[in-house]
């Protein structure tokens, strides 16, 4: 039983059932950030937590198989570039960070386009950054045991 990395069978089964729901809840929080409580920061941390959950239950290799370290760092950079390009799009309307993308109709999902895309970019940045930090702390621990 101890040959496999990770925790016991009960924890693994529960993780397999819940990890998808947690990831989906994080994406919901991000996409509805301009309508209801939540937003890019909370959604990004929840997305990071879903991968952390996988890492705690199944060991580091299972989580790194889903999303490897170079992919995570590239996603974080994509988030930063998206946020900066949204800021530069504002220059078309007059000044930095101006909401040129339009407001849309309030109370619908596709409205307030500036806030929506900013939420997505912030969630990518926060989620991938915190995941990278936690994986590096876990890997440093593995190095010490040798």
């Amino acid at each position: 039983m101890n040959k496999e990395p990770g925790m016991t069978l009960i924890v693994k089964t529960v993780t397999r059932l819940t990890v998808g729901i947690i990831l989906m809840y994080g994406i919901y929080i991000v996409l509805h950030g301009h309508l209801s409580p939540g937003g890019g920061f909370a959604g990004g941390v929840i997305i990071a937590l879903s991968f952390v959950h996988l890492m705690l239950a199944y060991g580091k290799e299972a989580a790194l198989k889903k999303i490897s370290l170079p992919v995570a760092s590239v996603l974080e950079s994509i988030g930063a570039i998206m946020f900066i390009s949204i800021a530069f799009l504002g220059l078309l309307g007059g000044y930095f960070f101006f909401h040129t993308l339009g407001t849309g109709e309030p109370f619908s999902l596709f409205s307030a386009y500036t806030v929506l895309f900013s939420n997505i970019s912030i969630s990518l940045k926060v989620g991938c950054g915190l995941f990278l930090v936690l994986v590096s702390i876990a890997l440093a621990g593995k190095e010490k045991k040798k």
């Binding site: 301009h34 407001t103 309030p106």
Partner: peptide, 10 residues
Amino acid sequence: ATGATNLVSA
């Protein structure tokens, strides 16, 4: 101005 109903996000 922004179309977002969550004022903190706005």
